[in-house]
């Protein structure tokens, strides 16, 4: 690597366009809503930046605090479910024959390349009252009902389709659906790096599969698990589309409140404050991850 002084002309030619772009069309917009977050509305469209902390204080109102808690709960549930599902899946991929591995990995990543909106829309067709899941449940119900009648018992009665869409269940279901690849990939990366002789030693020395998994595999894969938890949790927390399309009025997340402040409620300063709170949480989670991985590498050396 060269010192930039060695060839300042090339350095500046290479750095000026991207740096200016980032400054003008990314950092400046962020700085603008940062300033707005300390402002208040003036008239219908005016915003006066008065450096008041009111918008941040208003976010502490139980109404909004509850939405933050709910978002944390949804994102936490999503992360937990993804972790439970992704652990066996990534373990199976890691120990699959070499020719299968690449194919399985591509199969995990592929949905990720499909438009988020379309995937969410596909879930609506699965979950709605007259959707595929309820149709499946109904046929199971009917056959159980038929068997029960055939052996002379009372039938189960008519099938009443459960409400699967527009509630908290649908939101977590959708978030898991969308974020599963985020969890599988880092787990796979960590498990694939793992030294298998540790597992063999553990099994040879008489520990069962269960014990080996929890005392050897999980600790060895911990950096991957932590990294997967963080990169699943962050986008899940800021999700907009999933709660918007799959959730009901009771299952809105922070991003939906932010959107409402900028569109229908037209309170940009408050929306800006909420955006920045969400961003601070994101940065905190990233810092946590950096802290953990640093501690890990320091221990390894």
């Amino acid at each position: 690597m060269d010192n930039w002084r060695k060839n300042p002309r090339v350095f500046w030619i290479l750095s000026a366009p991207p740096a200016l772009w980032l400054l003008g069309f990314f950092l400046l917009p962020l700085a603008l809503i940062w300033a707005y977050s300390f402002g208040h509305k003036e008239g219908i469209i005016g915003i006066a930046i008065s450096w008041t902390p009111d918008n941040y204080l208003r976010a502490l109102d139980p109404l909004y605090l509850q939405i933050f808690l709910k978002s944390f709960w949804f994102a936490g549930m999503t992360t937990a479910v993804c972790l439970i599902v992704a652990l066996p899946v990534s373990l199976a991929i890691t120990f699959a024959p070499a020719r299968w591995k690449a194919l399985l990995l591509v199969l995990v990543i592929l949905p990720f390349w499909t438009n988020l909106l379309i995937r969410t829309y596909a879930l609506i067709a699965v979950l709605r009252t007259r959707g595929f899941l309820n149709a499946g449940l109904e046929s199971v119900w009917d056959s159980v009902d038929g068997v029960a009648r055939a052996v002379g018992l009372d039938g189960l009665g008519a099938f009443t389709p459960p409400q699967l869409l527009y509630n908290n269940f649908a939101v977590v279901f959708g978030l898991v659906y969308v974020h599963l690849p985020f969890m599988v990939l880092p787990l796979y990366a960590a498990l694939d790096r793992m030294d298998r002789s540790h597992l063999e030693a553990s099994l040879d020395l008489g520990a069962g599969q269960f014990r080996t998994f929890f005392s050897i595999t999980v600790p060895l894969a911990m950096p991957g698990i932590l990294s997967g938890v963080v990169i699943t949790f962050i986008p899940a927390l800021g999700s907009f589309l999933t709660p918007d399309l799959l959730g009901g009025t009771e299952s809105q997340m922070i991003a939906n409140v932010i959107e409402r402040q900028f569109k229908s409620a037209n309170d940009w300063p408050f929306g800006s404050a909420l955006s920045f709170i969400l961003m601070y949480i994101t940065f905190f989670a990233l810092a946590l991850r950096a802290f953990f991985s640093r501690g890990r590498s320091a221990m390894d050396t």
Partner: peptide, 17 residues
């Protein structure tokens, strides 16, 4: 930063800008 910040924050920042 553009990779890590939540999409919604970038969206509203662009709208405001």
């Amino acid at each position: 930063l553009p990779i890590v910040i939540p999409e919604i924050c970038m969206g509203v920042a662009m709208l405001a800008f």
